[in-house]
Design a protein around this nucleic acid. Structure first.
Length: 147
DNA sequence: GCCAACGTTGGC
DNA sequence: GCCAACGTTGGC
């Protein structure tokens, strides 16, 4: 899951312990949260638009997807007039802090790994803010984090 | 700040 | 349903 650290970083999550992942306004990302994410699933926390961009740590899913309350708030930049309480359009899961990596695993380092050649986040033009990761990719990244 | 890539909107 | 115009993402 990507976040711009100037907006919400792994340090923010560490301080908060848990946070609702509000403000996702992309259907693919929403569907992924609703359909795929389950309690205690592990998450790679990625810093985008950062120096350097890369994986900053780990989180887990602590609550299943629920309607994102910001879609009802007129003053919010995430307000959606086409959404209603009866028929909510946007959802968010709750993330729980797990670990901050001692060193960020930078995008440049990730790109060097043969084992991660197919990882979605490394593919050209892949902007989706929530992406699936295979078990093999996940394990490989854990190994990199320990070095 | 640039810009490629992609998603969304809206006229037709 | 097509597609041009526009907006956003995010690396560089």
């Amino acid at each position: 899951m990507k976040s711009e650290p100037s907006v919400y970083s792994i340090e923010h999550l560490q301080a908060d312990t848990c946070t609702w992942w509000e403000g996702i306004r992309n259907y693919q990302a929403r569907n992924f949260m609703v359909q795929e994410m389950r309690i205690s699933d592990q998450v790679l926390f990625y810093h985008s638009n950062a120096e350097p961009p890369g994986i900053a740590g780990l989180a887990t899913i602590s609550q299943l997807a629920q309607p994102d309350s910001l879609q009802y708030e007129k003053k919010s930049e995430y307000f959606d007039a086409k959404s209603s309480q009866e028929n909510p359009r946007w959802f968010c899961v709750q993330l729980k802090f797990a670990q901050k990596f001692a060193n960020i695993i930078s995008l440049a380092e990730l790109k060097k790994e043969q084992a991660l050649k197919k990882m979605l986040v490394l593919q050209k033009g892949q902007r989706l803010s929530i992406q699936p990761v295979t078990p093999a990719e996940f394990q490989h990244i854990l190994k990199m984090a320990k070095k």
